[in-house]
Write a protein that binds this DNA or RNA. Sequence first.
DNA 1: GTGGTCTAGACCACT
DNA 2: GTGGTCTAGACCACC
Lengths: 134, 134, 134, 134
Amino acid sequence: MIIKPNTSSGTPIYVQLKDQIKHAIETGALRPGEQLPGMRKLAEELVINPNTVARVYRELEQEGVIELRQGSGAFVAEQAKGSARADILRARPLVKALLVKLLHMGLGEEEIRRLFEAELIAARAENNTQASRK
Amino acid sequence: MIIKPNTSSGTPIYVQLKDQIKHAIETGALRPGEQLPGMRKLAEELVINPNTVARVYRELEQEGVIELRQGSGAFVAEQAKGSARADILRARPLVKALLVKLLHMGLGEEEIRRLFEAELIAARAENNTQASRK
Amino acid sequence: MIIKPNTSSGTPIYVQLKDQIKHAIETGALRPGEQLPGMRKLAEELVINPNTVARVYRELEQEGVIELRQGSGAFVAEQAKGSARADILRARPLVKALLVKLLHMGLGEEEIRRLFEAELIAARAENNTQASRK
Amino acid sequence: MIIKPNTSSGTPIYVQLKDQIKHAIETGALRPGEQLPGMRKLAEELVINPNTVARVYRELEQEGVIELRQGSGAFVAEQAKGSARADILRARPLVKALLVKLLHMGLGEEEIRRLFEAELIAARAENNTQASRK
DNA sequence: GTGGTCTAGACCACT
DNA sequence: GTGGTCTAGACCACC
């Protein structure tokens, strides 16, 4: 199930939508061969412009994640690279548990995002350092 | 220490920079009264346009997070709302530990971001449901 | 013999198919009075929608290239304008020779198409210039 | 120099434009690092919509052919794959000579296109056959 | 009815 | 003034 992208979050709508769909495929919520909602229908549901959905679908096709078949619809590619990834499914409850904890500690959503992003960058930097040391 | 914003991530540079500064204040890396790097110097360091930095500083001042003193520079506001938040400092190692774990499980950076964002939205939705039930 | 149109080339299927049939007539591969393959059969062979073939036949009839006889099928028009054109038959080996040469020089198919199209436009422009000078 | 795409040729405007730009780079008419015309300016020149040019530039960037720099413009990528290809430059006069010949033989532009396309497909088929025999 | 292209025009991000 | 996103709406291609 796709959530309405946040219109006032800096991140473009089409990026948010793309990420949601990729994530749905990674978790197996959308399975290879399954049909995606029609462009117009989805646009109406999310209260965004059909062209924006069209762009998302076009780019996802270009990345090999979905297939667009003229006249018949959009489908999750049979060969979609990261479909129903076991590691992501195992990771999910861990992430959820942590988020619940942080929210109970009184952190706000935006603060969590900032903290998370900062640590992600830091972790990447450390990995790179280790890698270049090897 | 401020990291070069990612130019090709969809999220605008100035949003990334603002978030980084806010986060530095929340963790106490930047303390009330402390001087921020000069706009030109920072712009040069991050290889971005000075106007972009100017915009960030201007907006942060408007939000009451920093103070711009004509001729002498930018300073973290004495009254900065969330300075050196204890809860965030306690949260930080938890986040870091989880990220390290996820990376070791083989998740990519983008996949982690998508997973995290999806769970954050889900958590918010649950909270709202609970709240409206009360 | 008709080749499966390229689904991912930008050019619509029905245009490709029309062009192929016209070309077959111009080279004499299809002769006036000769019967074209049945719509359903052709659609099946090319793995495209029968409606697409129907459209092609309809438009070709409108252009006077073929005749549709209710119940008995489609036939190359007796009066088909450019049937078995001698000049095109003479031109064919020249084109083929050049293409073989270009491919051996290491040019890719798309590069050849772009080069060819560009030179065709240039040639037309020159002709127009000459014509308007006269 | 970029020519106005043919609005009524079946092939979408944006595909034609993309091909023209790629070809200009392949022939060295556009060199790595060189700035492309602004989106709006080019759109005005070609009498097409700026969004169409935007799409072309975006896709070319995605293919690594050009670089888009916010606020400063579009530039041919320094690493553009097929810049000023010697083989294409050598091929050009051969193609031109043949086209002039065909036009003098009385062939029309569309007939030449069809002939060329058919022979290109045939040549590809032959190559594949040879390849699979090896 | 599905996707595909194109236009027109507004407003934002960035140099 | 450059590119970037989004909206609105028309018309075509294809199933």
